[in-house]
Design a protein around this nucleic acid. Structure first.
Lengths: 206, 206
DNA sequence: CGAAGGTGAGAACGTTCGTTCTCGCTCGCG
DNA sequence: CGCGAGCGAGAACGAACGTTCTCACCTTCG
């Protein structure tokens, strides 16, 4: 079969696929995954069940695709925050918490998709649990890169990651974005204390 | 199944009620709430559906009872940790993270019930979301009492709470208890920095 | 024009959900 | 001893789940 002759359908399916992912993400995020059936997704997206199952062979497959998309968005937000952090790795680390503060302010904020999904499906869907674990490990690794640039010990990265995770759940449950500012203040203290200690006791670069 | 004593109603119903709550807690915690039907609870607990609905008029009612019981257990763990913390409020605060480290080591640890339940049901069950919010607020208030005793500014309590929440989710997803030690180290830094600051500048009220 | 194949709307399938009901059975008490 | 109330086991119920199928309708192309 000539592969390029059907090129009229191909670009549109990619848009439909993205539209489905956006709709599914919104529904899953706001109501939980088990509470959103394929019929609800069909009604909200306007895409027929036939095409839904054509693009995503099962609900679990769709959930994974939604998580993959969220992972890309998260990574993009992180890199944007780091890029806007003015120069020093210390400021870049703190810019992550500024990004969190803006996110928490969004109307439909309801916590971290990965944490929520882990609580709901982590115990019964090992594949999804592994995906979530890898995503969080990747975030911690990115923080560790920045921490290494500051010259502070690697343990600081774990502490900063815990602050970010705690801020997300605290903000979600409390319904306010105070947690982002508290986490930023705590991060500032932890970073500056670690820098002062590593400066008096020489270890790495600079 | 109970072979020996066929005691009459009231004293035994309390035991049965507790037995149901323990079984439901274990199942909900390990698999998620939506994934555990009343039939599974009947099979695992050995209690007939008739008695289940006699003691808990609906599944949502049962879920609330499980959360209430977990709240009491949590409060008891917190108070025990504080009591074993040797003397100073600083040590009492740090003892909370030692308690977390022991909890994370348990085989079936899968994060904080309240965070998991909020992710799964918080978007569709406002009553349960409110219960979770009140529980977390109560924990923060207890931390604030101890922080006030140290003389540090009240903002420290929020930072310590964020560390505790972040440690729970991080430990659950990573599958290790490292997060408890990282959170304890971070808490130590934050407390001591706050104490040093408030000692040199003794204005602590807000 | 007519055959082939893909489409959307939605019915249908088998399962599972939360909840209620049926029906023998047991047992305290008159 | 008999009787009525409470019990466990499990069937039954309507709804909702994930998934598949039907069928009338469009294109597209020989």
């Amino acid at each position: 079969m000539p592969p390029a002759t059907r090129n009229r359908t191909t670009p549109q399916t990619e848009q439909i696929r993205e539209h489905i992912l956006i709709t599914a993400d919104r529904l899953y995020y706001s109501r939980g995954i088990n509470a959103v059936g394929m019929d609800a997704l069909r009604n909200e997206s306007g895409v027929s069940l036939k095409r839904l199952y054509q693009l995503f062979p099962s609900k679990e497959n769709l959930v994974e695709a939604v998580l993959h998309r969220r992972r890309d968005i998260w990574n993009s937000l992180i890199e944007t925050a780091i890029a806007t952090g003015s120069g020093t790795p210390r400021d870049q680390l703190l810019a992550v918490y500024d990004m969190l503060a803006r996110w928490f302010d969004e109307d439909d904020f309801r916590g971290c998709v990965f944490i929520n999904t882990f609580g709901e499906l982590g115990g019964t869907a090992p594949h999804i649990a592994a995906l979530i674990r890898e995503h969080k490990a990747s975030f911690q690794a990115r923080l560790a890169e920045l921490v290494t640039e500051t010259g502070a010990p690697a343990a600081l990265a774990h502490q900063l990651a815990i602050l970010a995770e705690g801020a997300q759940t605290t903000a979600a449950i409390a319904g306010t974005n105070d947690a982002a500012h508290h986490a930023r203040a705590a991060a500032t203290t932890l970073i500056d204390t670690a820098l002062a200690a590593s400066r008096s006791k020489p270890t790495t670069t600079r």
